[in-house]
Design a protein around this nucleic acid. Structure first.
Lengths: 176, 176
DNA sequence: TCCATCTCCATGACACATCATCTATGGAGG
DNA sequence: CCTCCATAGATGATGTGTCATGGAGATGGA
């Protein structure tokens, strides 16, 4: 083992600032959503994708890829959301292993109520203090890191299913 | 409520790229640490701060501020770490409400073993694909967002305990 | 056809985070 | 001294994420 390439002081500061920014931001967004309408950030993301899907209906596996979540995380999440009446399940005709998840009225109501406040918070806390150039630079930077994450591969997973760099996918700023 | 300021398409993409970068990065770092030495990222952070403290000893409240964690999160975390033999507790002389947490030999061993691989992974996945200017720009950007998070205040928490935003390091190319 | 294998999804165990609440001590003012 | 409140920290309930595993249905040869 060769001597590790330690981080320089300014690298450490940048790294920690990045982590701190994310954790505080996520905490704020979670609390805002929770306070405003009893949703978590995870609920919100699922609801966004469902509400954008045709008929408010989607296959779990499709959601999984879109959200880039672990399969079991999504499964648990959907179970909880079903229990709270935000979504329901339907057996799937074409592929009887699978299922359809679909938005209930309560679910659509929840996302419609939640979206404006959430987007406003994202804008106020994140976009407002930044310039357009800074946002663009962050986007570029994230793309580079994601590309590295991809082709560095899960070590021991030599052939990764190549797909999305920050291609679209509607996120926080949706129109209900 | 006025019409919300929805996110433009490129803003959405940037935002989602940022979130995706963080979640994938965190997942990778967690797995690497877990595989290499059975530590979580949270364990690692606690151990780092403890190992940098004089005598491998610190007050919980001090750790809490340094890590920017919720109090109960730290308390639970320390309980688990104590149970696994990474740290121990000591009653505190000066303030008998409090305690000292101190690194055990096993804890010091763990952080010593973990650090090179962790730093190497951070460098490979995060710093290597970026230029110095990009890192500096990210640092600046994070500072701005953190400042906003601070003075936006926890709504209903008008007087926040002012503390660190990453002081910007001079000289690196940037233009707000 | 039959069997191996892959895909889609659920589940239980456990680690972790947050919230609300609780104890005990410290400190200031009467 | 005592009272009131702030601070340090622990704890239990609950929601959330990951890992390992399992099972049913699809798929593709031999």
């Amino acid at each position: 083992m060769t001597e590790p390439r330690w981080l320089a002081a300014d690298e450490q500061r940048a790294w920690r600032a990045f982590l701190l920014m994310h954790s505080r931001l996520a905490a704020r967004l979670n609390r805002q959503l929770q306070a405003a309408c009893g949703l978590s950030l995870a609920d919100y993301e699922v609801l966004v994708h469902l509400s954008e899907a045709a008929g408010g209906r989607a296959r779990p596996h499709e959601l999984q890829r879109a959200l880039d979540w672990e399969q079991s995380r999504l499964s648990h999440q959907l179970a909880r959301m079903r229990q709270r009446g935000l979504v329901t399940r339907e057996r799937c005709g074409e592929d009887r292993r699978g299922a359809h998840v679909l938005l209930t009225d309560a679910g659509r109501q929840a996302i419609t109520t939640a979206a404006p406040g959430h987007v406003e918070t994202v804008r106020r806390l994140f976009f407002d203090p930044l310039t357009e150039d800074q946002v663009a630079a962050l986007h570029t930077l994230a793309g580079q890191v994601l590309a590295r994450l991809d082709d560095d591969g899960a070590p021991g997973d030599p052939e990764a299913p190549r797909d999305e760099a920050p291609r679209d996918a509607g996120g926080s700023g949706r129109r209900p």
